[in-house]
Design a protein around this nucleic acid. Structure first.
Lengths: 113, 113
DNA sequence: TTAACATGCAATCTGGAGGTTGCACGTATG
DNA sequence: CATACGTGCAACCTCCAGATTGCATGTTAA
C-alpha cells in the first residue's frame, strides 16, 4: 500500500500522546489502570489540584478515547479504555521499525563503497 | 555524561509523551525515522510552518531526549535517538499490564460470589 | 423532609506553547 | 573576494491549557 514510510502514521496518534503528556493526567491513567474504577472525588485525592481540575483532565482523556466514565447513582465511575493505548504503542513501534530500516539502509550504503 | 533528557522518562514520563503530542513534531519524528539524517531546511519543507518554528520543535524533541542534532559544516543534521522511544513504549506496556491485572482481579472477584 | 455528598456549569485568571518577522553570524561556492 | 546558503538569536503576538472560586443540580441517607 503506502510505500511512503513517513505517511504510515497519517492517522493522528498525536492527540493520544498529548493526552498522556501531562503529569496529572498520566498519574490519573496509572491509578485507573492499577485500581478498580473510581469516582472523581476519590481520584482527586492526592493530586494536589481541585476536583474541577481533575474533571477537566478526565474529559481530556475521554476525548482522546483513553478513559470512560459511567454514571452510577450520584457518582461517576471512571475506568481505562485501553484500545487507543494499544494504538499509541503501535505508533511507537512503527517509528522504531522505520528507524531500524533506515539504519540498515545506511549501513548497506556505506559498505557498498 | 548522558544528555539532559537521559532519565526524562524515569522522572517525568509525561514530558516524552508531551513532546510527541504535537502533530508537527510527530511528523518530524516520523520523517527522521524514515529517511537519512536531515538538515533543518530539508525538514522544514512540507511542514507548512517556518524554519524557526521547526527549530523550536526540534529543540523540544531534543530536550525530551528523542532526537539529536549534529553540526556538519554549515548545516545541522538531525536524527532519531531511539532510546526514549523504547522507554515510552515500555511505559505504555506497563499501564496496559496493570489494567489487565486489575481486570483479572475484578473478574475473579465477581466469579467468587 | 432535610442535610450531606457527588457532580456539573460558568466566569475568570495566568503562563506558556506555537507561530511569525527581522536581523546577525558563520560557512560554502562561484 | 563576493554572494548565496543554513542557522541562531531576539522581540513580539495570539491563543488556549491548566487551574481556581462560586453557585446550581441531582442523589443518597438519616
Amino acid at each position: 500500500m503506502s510505500p511512503k514510510g513517513a505517511d504510515a502514521l497519517a492517522r493522528d496518534p498525536a492527540s493520544v500522546f498529548a493526552a498522556l503528556g501531562d503529569r496529572t493526567r498520566l498519574r490519573l491513567v496509572a491509578r485507573m489502570a492499577a485500581d478498580e474504577p473510581q469516582s472523581i472525588s476519590r481520584l482527586t485525592a492526592g493530586t494536589g489540584v481541585t476536583r474541577q481540575a481533575v474533571t477537566r483532565h478526565l474529559q481530556v482523556l475521554a476525548a482522546a478515547g483513553l478513559v470512560r466514565g459511567r454514571r452510577r447513582g450520584r457518582e461517576v465511575v471512571w475506568a481505562i479504555e485501553p484500545d487507543r493505548l494499544v494504538e499509541a504503542r503501535r505508533a511507537l513501534d512503527e517509528i522504531s521499525a522505520q528507524w531500524d530500516r533506515a539504519l540498515a539502509r545506511l549501513r548497506a550504503h556505506v559498505e557498498a563503497e
